[in-house]
Simulated scan of single mutants.
Amino acid sequence: MKSIAIVACSNPLSLSSKESNEKLFELLRNDGRNLLISKCIYEQEDELLSSGKERADELMKFFSNPDVTDIYDISGGDMANEILDYLDFEIIRKSQAVFWGYSDLTTVINAIYSQTGKSSVLYQIKNILHGEPDSLFKPKFEIIQGQGIEGTVVGGNIRCFLKLAGTKYIPEMNGKILLIESLGGKIPQMITYLSQLRSMGVFEKINGIILGTFTEMEKENCSPDMTELVQKFVGPNMPIAKTCEIGHSRDSKAIWIGKEIEIRNE
């Protein structure tokens, strides 16, 4: 029987989230597939955290299961990159299972691509509790600089993507399309992240940039906004696309990391 799996590779979920998570699990069970759940989902009452190896072992258990088609990570936070050194990327490469996650899981998604060539989905599956959006994999884009964008998408949450800098897990950036979005952070933080990307030589290698939502900046109506900041860093010749449908909002849509994309204005 085909199965789907639930994991939490980043911060453990609070015990208070159990009720809403059970609603998600019930919804997923109604899909007609067997539901498997990691042992490392919730915080422990004694405040002990599961180790990176323990969380990685749970993830590998599902990648090793030939019946598992999709692995949904329902966590976020800070600690996902702790599991990377414990993953068996050869098993992941051979597995049919697709990994789904967002935010801090940007680290895992991009590591899977860089080490195996496999694509993963940048999306928080808990959003389906609020209604799965139409055309889940078809967010709307607007070209705001250049004639269009074409290439393989890498990236995700900008803060979390930069955790891979200097490691073997960061994707090769030549010819790629860099997707960036963020929940927190205002102008000083974004300048920090963009400065690091520039110092890494990323802007000299990529074919274009996709801007998702930048929740705190947009809430605070920061000026300059993220589009203006990016333009200052990359100049007038870098193709840039913008979407309001990829990020941390409940109605965000999904995008494949590690797959080709072509964006043109209608």
Results as ranks from 00 to 15, higher is better:
1 M>P: 04
3 S>G: 04
6 I>R: 07
9 C>E: 01
12 P>D: 06
12 P>V: 00
20 S>R: 14
20 S>E: 15
22 E>I: 12
23 K>C: 11
24 L>F: 12
25 F>E: 02
27 L>A: 14
31 D>W: 14
32 G>D: 14
33 R>Q: 15
33 R>K: 15
34 N>C: 11
36 L>Q: 06
37 I>M: 09
37 I>D: 05
38 S>K: 07
38 S>D: 00
39 K>P: 03
40 C>H: 13
40 C>I: 10
42 Y>L: 08
42 Y>W: 12
45 E>V: 11
46 D>I: 08
46 D>T: 05
47 E>V: 10
49 L>D: 09
50 S>W: 06
53 K>H: 10
57 D>G: 06
57 D>S: 11
57 D>A: 12
63 F>R: 01
64 S>T: 09
65 N>T: 02
67 D>K: 10
68 V>A: 03
68 V>W: 03
69 T>H: 08
71 I>R: 09
73 D>W: 05
79 M>C: 04
81 N>V: 06
82 E>F: 03
84 L>P: 00
86 Y>D: 02
87 L>V: 13
87 L>M: 13
89 F>D: 01
90 E>H: 13
91 I>W: 06
93 R>F: 05
94 K>E: 15
95 S>A: 15
98 V>F: 11
99 F>K: 00
100 W>R: 00
102 Y>F: 06
106 T>C: 03
108 V>K: 01
111 A>V: 08
111 A>D: 00
111 A>E: 05
114 S>R: 02
114 S>Y: 03
114 S>T: 11
114 S>F: 10
115 Q>H: 04
116 T>N: 15
116 T>H: 13
121 V>P: 04
126 K>Q: 12
127 N>S: 09
128 I>E: 03
128 I>C: 09
129 L>G: 09
129 L>C: 06
134 D>K: 15
135 S>A: 15
136 L>R: 01
136 L>M: 03
139 P>V: 07
140 K>N: 12
144 I>F: 05
152 T>V: 15
152 T>R: 07
152 T>W: 09
153 V>P: 01
157 N>K: 08
158 I>T: 04
158 I>N: 02
159 R>T: 07
159 R>V: 06
160 C>Q: 11
161 F>R: 02
163 K>G: 03
167 T>S: 05
167 T>W: 00
169 Y>N: 02
173 M>C: 07
173 M>K: 08
175 G>W: 11
177 I>D: 00
180 I>M: 12
181 E>H: 12
182 S>W: 07
184 G>C: 11
184 G>T: 10
187 I>D: 01
191 I>R: 10
191 I>H: 06
194 L>S: 04
196 Q>R: 15
197 L>H: 07
198 R>E: 15
201 G>I: 07
203 F>Q: 06
204 E>M: 04
204 E>T: 06
205 K>M: 15
207 N>R: 08
207 N>P: 05
207 N>C: 05
209 I>D: 05
212 G>P: 03
216 E>C: 07
224 P>D: 14
224 P>E: 12
225 D>Y: 07
226 M>S: 02
226 M>N: 02
227 T>N: 07
233 F>T: 08
234 V>Q: 02
234 V>E: 00
236 P>M: 06
240 I>W: 10
242 K>R: 15
242 K>H: 15
243 T>M: 09
245 E>S: 13
250 R>N: 14
251 D>G: 07
252 S>D: 08
256 W>L: 12
256 W>A: 09
260 E>D: 13
260 E>V: 08
263 I>E: 08
